[in-house]
Structure formats: C-alpha cells, structure tokens
C-alpha cells in the first residue's frame, strides 16, 4: 500500500495530497500556507495596536501626572486610596450605606483590566451584604455594565457608557453630576473603584472613599475650625460636589493610563504568540514539504 501511495503522490500531489494527508491528521500545504498568512495579518494588526497604545500611553501618563497634584488637596478631607488585595480584601472600612462606582472602559483587547474592577466590585457588594451593610452601584463603562448586570443587577442605579477618553474636567464634572443625581448625598460614602497606574507593566486596583461632610450631630463636624463667608451648609455642599469631581477626574486619568499600558502589554504578548505560531507553522509546512519530496 505504502509504495503505491508514495508513487501516486509523486505523480499528482495536488490531487491526492488532501485525501491521504487528512487521514494522517495533517494539514495540507495549502492549509498551512493560508494559516500562516492569516496569522501574519493578525500579527500586523496586534503589533500596530501595540504601537498606537504605546503612543497614547504617553499622553495618558502626562495627563495623570497633572491630575495627581490637582487632586492632592482632597486627601486632606478623604482617606487615602486603599489597594484591593484580590479576594482577601475585607472592605471593612466602608460605612453602612455606600455608593460604589466602578471605573471601566468600553473597549476590550486590554487584558483583564475591566474584569479586575468588576470582580472587585462584586466581592465588595458580597462582603458588604454579609456584614449587613447596603451598597448600590453606579457603573461607568460598557464592559463594567455588562459584567455588573450579571453579578449584581439589583444594585445598579445608574450607568454611564460610551464615555469618550481622554477625560477632561468637564467630563469629570458631568459624571459627578450623575452621581449627585443618583443621590450621592444620601449615602454614607461614595466609593470609587479604579485601576491605578504604577508603571507601564504594573497596575493595581484601588478604592477611594469619598465621605460627605458632616453638617451637624454628635460626631465631629467637618471643617469646624473654619469660618465661612457665605452660608456654611451651601458652601460645604458645593465643596463636596467639587471634591467628587476632582476625585473622579483623578480616578479616570489613573484608569485610562492603566488601561492603555495594559493594552500595550496584551498586544505585545499577542504579537509574540502570533510570531511563535508562524514559526511552528512554517516548520510544519517545511516538514510536510520534505515528506512529500522524499
């Protein structure tokens, strides 16, 4: 059997190649060639996406370095951001009734950046409920919207999608207005959950608690050592609005930079994998060719 097959293949490799080689579970030369071409095209796309995000990352980094000092003052009135340590994060510093705001994006192909935020939010809601606390969610970004709808549909009160980056303070103000409309003042705290950019290869999930000011009551009244020109209650409500916008501005910039760096890494890995695939396919193609010729 074998010698005849060999002879047949030598006479007309195109006609017989497909049938005999598929029996042996091998792709034909043509199939391998097509696959190599397809993989090469994908590699071109991923490597250009990597270049684009590397260029965009520069802009995002610049905006972030400007947003950090801009928002620095608010940490005199809010606690510092806390890092989310995966499943072990206790979220025990959150008050009785919180409004969670996960910052995600609309675009994919950027690694697990949006999933990390969604997972952190889901864990947070779960742990707060277990501790007998309440939590509602205002989700930013379409990826987060999709995931939160599966995880905690009943907790979502509002969503903002197709948010166009790069963010500006106008955008942050508008998002703050959305939070105010969702009743931010009636919660014990607004909690912003976002990705924090460390460097081009590392980002971390963090949450920021933005508590409203205490106007009266037994506990310590906020800014009690200050005198106000105008009505104090009004001034503090305005200050809270501004603080919220400022914190959102910073979180948004931080998240945008982290997303871009993550996309860069993801695309770099994809290009590398495509390269490996092309190499192994080429080898297989060569081996096939070798078998056929000899």
């Amino acid at each position: 059997m074998a010698p005849t097959l060999m002879a047949a293949r030598r006479v007309a490799p195109r006609a017989f190649g497909t049938a005999t080689q598929q029996v042996r579970g091998m792709a034909t030369e043509k199939q391998i060639f097509n696959q190599i071409n397809a993989t090469k095209n994908i590699q071109k796309i991923t490597s250009s996406m990597k270049m684009v995000s590397a260029a965009k990352l520069k802009g995002d980094e610049t905006r972030l370095t400007k947003a950090i000092p801009f928002n620095q003052w608010s940490f005199a009135l809010c606690p510092e951001p806390v890092e989310v340590e995966d499943a072990t994060c206790p979220y025990d510093d959150l008050p009785q009734k919180s409004l969670l705001v996960p910052f995600t994006s609309d675009k994919g192909l950027c690694g697990g950046i949006n999933s990390f935020i969604s997972r952190a939010t889901r864990e947070c809601v779960k742990k707060l409920h277990a501790a007998g606390k309440e939590a509602d969610v205002v989700v930013i970004g379409d990826k987060g919207r999709g995931q939160m709808r599966r995880f905690v549909p009943d907790q979502i009160v509002r969503s903002a999608t197709e948010v166009v980056a790069p963010g500006t303070f106008s955008l942050a103000s508008a998002l703050a207005a959305e939070l105010m409309a969702a009743g931010a003042m009636e919660y014990d705290a607004v909690v912003l959950i976002y990705n924090s950019y460390v460097n081009a290869a590392v980002y971390k999930q963090k949450y920021k608690i933005v508590p409203p000011f205490v106007f009266e009551g037994e506990s310590e009244v906020s800014l009690s050592t200050y005198d106000f020109d105008s009505d104090k209650d009004e001034a503090m409500a305005d200050l809270y609005e501004f603080m919220l916008a400022s914190q959102i501005f910073h979180s948004f910039m931080d998240g945008a930079a982290a997303e871009q760096s993550s996309r860069m890494t993801a695309m770099e890995n994809a290009s590398k994998n495509a390269g490996e695939m092309i190499d192994s396919l080429t080898l297989r193609g060569l081996a096939n060719n070798h078998n056929r010729v000899w």
């Binding site: 709808r149 549909p153 009943d154 009160v157 999608t161 197709e162 166009v164 106008s170 955008l171 998002l175």
Partner: peptide, 16 residues
C-alpha cells in the same frame, strides 16, 4: 477641551 460625550441610563429593579 471641554467637549465630552457619554450615554447615561437609569436602572430600576435590575433593568436598564
């Protein structure tokens, strides 16, 4: 710089 755009929706009972 001040131009921005997004879509918002209010949810109730798990429905967008």
């Amino acid at each position: 710089q001040e131009a921005f755009q997004y879509n918002t929706s209010v949810w109730s009972g798990g429905v967008q």
